[in-house]
Amino acid sequence: MIPEFEKFKGFSAKNLPKDEPLAPGHRACQGCGEVLALRMVMKALGRDVIVCNATGCMEIISSPFPQTAWNVPWIHVAFENAAAVASGVESARKALMRKGRIPKKHVDILAVGGDGATGDIGLQWISGAFERGHDLLYVCLDNEAYMNTGVQRSGCTPYGAMTTTSPPGKKSFGQATWKKNVPAIMAAHGIPYVATASPAYYLDLMNKVKKAALVNGPAYVHIYSPCPTGWGSAGERSVEYSKLAVETRVFPLYEVIEGRYIMSRKITKPKPVLDYFKGQRRFRHLTDEQISSIQNKVDVEYEKIIKLSEMT
């Protein structure tokens, strides 16, 4: 077990931080599930954190000069390199503290990006940072497409989903590939902590983020982040979809602590995936046959994770 976890009692409904390290006035769309997840991440981390943001929705909506929604030190350089920028910040603090040039004080280093910045264009930078063992946490806010540029498909777009570059048509049913298993790729680096989270389960999310920050070394949290604009869903339903994705087993919640898979929430009586698809324009074109094939895949993938959790 990880010794750093022992001193952490966990967040509960009673001790949720009131402070908002991410300020209001940001330009996120109405009902944005991503900024909601980011708000929870920041609540869990507090103010002793330096944030390295990848280009994307969260960067754009939080920093139109001369304004910033960030109450904590924040840097944005480019799309793919947040993990490398964070490596630099962490290395600098290490050297400067050792050389007595800044006070010795632990500060969390958070690198944060969307699913494109994490699973596609930025994969190498994260892999490098994890392999080198920097003490930082990387949070992926997964809204399952390139939303900031106008809803193009990414490697994390689910099978069958309609995006502007995976449109259904006479010869297409939408996204033709299965969602890339990014948390598994991160876990394969042998880093001490990997977790998945969903803003509907806010206590679980915040506890995982805090644990990821406490770990000495690299940690990764993959957070499901509904996007009403990109998914063609009602803004008011963002939290509901965050819950349905878990209840249908589409987005299982688990931790991988030092290689051991631990289910955060076992879904024994799953709802059908159709319940989750309803009301999302991106899945509207799917046939019953396609939906049942997706249902099969969801069941198979869920079983795999259950097996992993039983193995260890």
Binding site: A23, P24, G25, P66, Q67, T68, N71
Partner: peptide
Amino acid sequence: DAIIGWKTLPFGCHVMEPGNSAKFRT
């Protein structure tokens, strides 16, 4: 408020006032 001259632009084009988006009414 972004309409300022290059001579008065903050160092590095940084935003020096934390959380000042709170002044923006959404």
